[in-house]
């Protein structure tokens, strides 16, 4: 059987909100080492990769590896019934066709349970090699959200260029053009306000803004976001989810015709 309890249930709510617009359904794979998900959007342009480690949960037990086929809009409907301060326990028997979610209020005076129907989903797994990136940029998640929101109102695609001057986001559209440059900045006493640019070599890539904006649905999960860029490779947009794990979004670039 599988059983996992997380006292900070709001994290689970935020995770599902972060990915439900991008992917309709997918297999959450449970194993003794934790929970993971890899799912592509319907156009196979971007991919969500979620890793939640067993030791990040208050309690975690999994006797047998199994995929749990989840329809994320339905998962979201049920998680919306959990209070923000509730502890959430997930339970499934081996080869079950449903996932039980139990919500406990923080003073344990309200307990509710819901069953989510599981689906059988044929999913393919993409092999994503570990690699060094030409540029890795850490910035406040709220700053990333602001940039992609602002630029989406101007254009459809963004050129992201990382140089020793900083990281520049450029777009253009019917109304005109926009450029936002962030410089390396660690002056704040608060680490979450830092912008850290780790540049091995300059790189410039073009991406569809609507996906980058969609990734910012994960903003509530982490104070910082990391962008990783290498020439001719998908960008990686990563949010650390506390001690629990991380959610990564991969987006294939736009390429010259």
């Amino acid at each position: 059987m599988f059983e996992a309890k997380i006292s900070q249930g709001s994290v689970l709510k935020k995770l599902v909100e972060a990915l439900k617009e991008l992917v309709t359904e997918g297999n959450i794979d449970v194993s003794p080492s934790g929970m993971s998900l890899q799912a592509m959007d319907s156009s196979h342009v971007c991919l969500v990769s979620l890793v939640l480690r067993d030791d990040g949960f208050d309690h975690f037990r999994c006797d047998r590896n199994m995929p749990m086929g989840i329809h994320f809009a339905n998962f979201s409907k049920i998680l919306k019934c959990a209070g923000n301060d509730d502890a959430i326990t997930l339970k499934a028997e081996d080869n079950a066709d449903q996932l039980t979610l139990m919500f406990e209020s923080s003073n344990q005076d309200r307990i509710s349970d819901f069953d989510l129907k599981l689906m059988s989903i044929e999913s393919e797994h993409l092999g994503i090699p570990d690699q060094d990136y030409s540029a890795e940029i850490k910035m406040p998640a709220s700053e990333y959200q602001r940039i992609v929101r602002d630029l989406t109102s101007i254009g459809d695609t963004v050129l992201i260029s990382a140089t020793k001057e900083g990281i520049k986001f450029s777009t253009s559209g019917d109304v005109g053009t926009a450029n936002v440059t962030l410089r390396h900045n660690t002056t704040s006493e608060k680490q979450e306000e830092h912008t850290i640019i780790d540049l091995k070599e300059p790189v410039a890539l073009t991406f569809a803004l609507r996906y980058l904006k969609n990734f910012s649905n994960a903003t509530a999960l982490a104070p910082q976001v990391k962008l990783s860029l290498t020439k001719d490779l998908p960008i990686v947009v990563e949010y650390q989810v506390g001690e629990l794990g991380n959610i990564r979004f991969y987006l294939a670039p736009k390429i010259d015709d």
């Binding site: 156009s43 342009v45 695609t157 569809a208 294939a252 736009k254």
Partner: peptide, 14 residues
């Protein structure tokens, strides 16, 4: 305008 690449252009399905 530039073309949108697919993930399959970069990552192998297994």
């Amino acid at each position: 305008s530039p073309l949108q690449a697919h993930l399959y252009d970069y990552f192998l399905a297994s």
